[in-house]
Design a protein around this nucleic acid. Structure first.
Length: 242
DNA sequence: CCGGTTGTTCAGCG
DNA sequence: GCGCTGAACAACCG
């Protein structure tokens, strides 16, 4: 689950803000008593972290690869966490649930979350300048630079800016580096918009695609970077900088 | 129907 | 202490 999907969840649960937790349970190893009757002060996201902020502590949910949730619905297996609040039953499945004792502002740098109003592209560029040998795909997946970007966004950004996934950051012309940073945020918001409309897949141009729409040649699949994540790309129009 | 993965952390090793 | 590798988790899709 990538950053924009968590923004959708935040919006779906906006009505819970200011409400008390009426019931809590699940298989997570967690002191549930802290949650009972606690009031949700804020619902927030940082990258792929979903945050329920209470007075004195915060619940952090990370969906990893297989996580999911249901609102007023249940799957046929036990939830990691279930809360009843504001008239809604929210069930979280196969996710990592932890309690943060520090206030989120102390832990999270909002300016590196591509979905945040505080997103700061200049800061991202400064970080990238320090990492010339970093693979471009690994750079996009680095949560300390582009929090919220996942493998789909990575793939589509590189296709959009016509950069080969084996390229290195330091070899990108300055203008290309600027495009990479800009598109990381722009595509993330397109992802958000399309996912809300249930038309995300329809708009994939490289991810899981067979033919390049620009060149009409076969899309390649290769595991790239130090992270060895899947990259779908067009050998013809995505330029290798290295 | 079974192999692979929209992700991250940690143990173990040299 | 470092980088690197592989395991673990765990469920849906094609």
């Amino acid at each position: 689950m990538e950053g924009p999907s968590l923004v959708i969840l935040k919006e779906e649960l906006a009505s819970l803000k200011g409400k008390k937790i009426m019931q809590v349970g699940g298989t997570a190893k967690l002191d549930f008593s802290r949650l009972t009757n606690a009031k949700i002060n804020q619902i927030n996201t940082w990258g792929k972290h979903f945050l329920l902020v209470f007075s004195g502590f915060t619940i952090r949910i990370h969906f990893l690869l297989f996580g999911s949730y249901r609102i007023n619905e249940r799957k046929d297996r036990a939830p990691k966490l279930t809360i009843t609040c504001g008239g809604k039953e929210v069930n979280f499945y196969s996710c990592a649930v932890t309690i943060l004792e520090e206030v989120p502002d102390k832990i999270y740098d909002w300016s590196c979350d591509v979905m945040s109003d505080a997103w700061d592209p200049t800061k991202a560029r400064k970080k990238l300048k320090q990492l010339p040998h970093l693979n471009v795909g690994d750079a996009l997946l680095d949560q300390t630079i582009f929090a919220g970007v996942g493998n789909i966004i990575k793939t589509e950004v590189l296709y959009r800016i016509k950069v080969h996934p084996d390229s290195n950051i330091g070899n990108l012309p300055p203008r290309k580096l600027g495009e990479l940073i800009k598109e990381a945020r722009l595509y993330s918001f397109d992802f958000l918009h399309w996912k809300k409309e249930f038309i995300l897949r329809k708009h994939w141009l490289a991810y899981k695609k067979k033919i390049c729409r620009r060149c009409n040649v076969a899309i390649q699949l290769k595991y790239t970077g130090i992270t060895k994540r899947r990259s779908f790309y067009c050998e013809q129009c995505q330029v290798l900088y290295n």
